[in-house]
Write a protein that binds this DNA or RNA. Sequence first.
DNA 1: CTGATTATTTATCTTATGATAAGAGAATAG
DNA 2: CTATTCTCTTATCATAAGATAAATAATCAG
Lengths: 187, 187
Amino acid sequence: MDQLFQYFNKFNPLDQEAMQAIEAISRIITIKKNQDLQPIGHTCKTIYFIKKGMARIYYYKDGIDITDSFAFENKIIVRVESLFTGKPSRKAIQAMEDSEIIAIDAAKLFKLYDRYPGIERLFRKIFEASHVETVNRIEGIQFHSAEERYKALLSEAPDIIKRVPLKYIASYLGITPVSLSRIRGQR
Amino acid sequence: MDQLFQYFNKFNPLDQEAMQAIEAISRIITIKKNQDLQPIGHTCKTIYFIKKGMARIYYYKDGIDITDSFAFENKIIVRVESLFTGKPSRKAIQAMEDSEIIAIDAAKLFKLYDRYPGIERLFRKIFEASHVETVNRIEGIQFHSAEERYKALLSEAPDIIKRVPLKYIASYLGITPVSLSRIRGQR
DNA sequence: CTGATTATTTATCTTATGATAAGAGAATAG
DNA sequence: CTATTCTCTTATCATAAGATAAATAATCAG
């Protein structure tokens, strides 16, 4: 749990009582590579923190597996469009390596917001940061070529190609695996 | 101000005192068509609510004017990536019609969060909703053709073509004005 | 109202990426 | 270890969108 609270400290430090309250609604999950943490069609009721390993959010478009996003160690992974709307998500969360994940019960967390304003503030800030990332990503997708996006990804997360099959990177970049291979090849 | 509080009610109703506190840090701006509400390079310190008229967020990429987003009546418009990071924004906000806009001082607003948890909660929910929109937009950009995106925009905001020059819609859709014209022409 | 500016369309040519297919290379189960 | 399956690359052809230029159409300032 320490690892989680260290992550929290970067956004909004909590007092002992608040930390205990969060600990009480969390549990540690171990999950094998390629298993779904949350299936498609499920309403998001959990906030996940990756202690060890990695995961991705994916969905199917016209029968094709599309990676929406990746999350590595010490990151939160959540299907925002379901968590904040209460609607079922068309996306799933899948472990991409054997992983240890802290699962925080979202309904219980939201209830804590009334008693612990520091917790509400913490998660507000966490999601604000992720909101900013999302806004910036739009610019990247819309106005950079696939090649530029691939190179940008490499410099942001150089180890990603060692840990993630290229086909998942391709759909994350919005291109086919064939195109990604072509981009990688020309050199 | 009524119009603003009605908008707030859809997210988290405020008590009288909280409403007055917000009113005290807000002012109404009237602005002419094509004027900048906020220039490029400025750090976002204001949250705008469009009472009447409309606005867009834009920036320059390689010297070309790119529209990031539009906002119509009864919507908030904000450069999230600057407001939440405190960094200067490469984007500007421009009125696209003669407009009346409520400007809420962000620094003062954030100070109100401590005394009025309802206000913190209100804005948390407002930005959560905008976060969800942003996440969904990524999917639209990445996995739909320009033609599909144009048609989707038309059905979401049918009057947009009457109010917004096509060149702005084109860059919002991530294509050139020439391409948009071609898409519109084929029919 | 009129000329000047700005926005939109149309045409031509180029290019990046998609679709498909086939083969090479890795990973995995038994 | 071997066979099967999965992943990646390479090649070919098709297509959507970019770049550029030029012609209309619409808007705006005086």
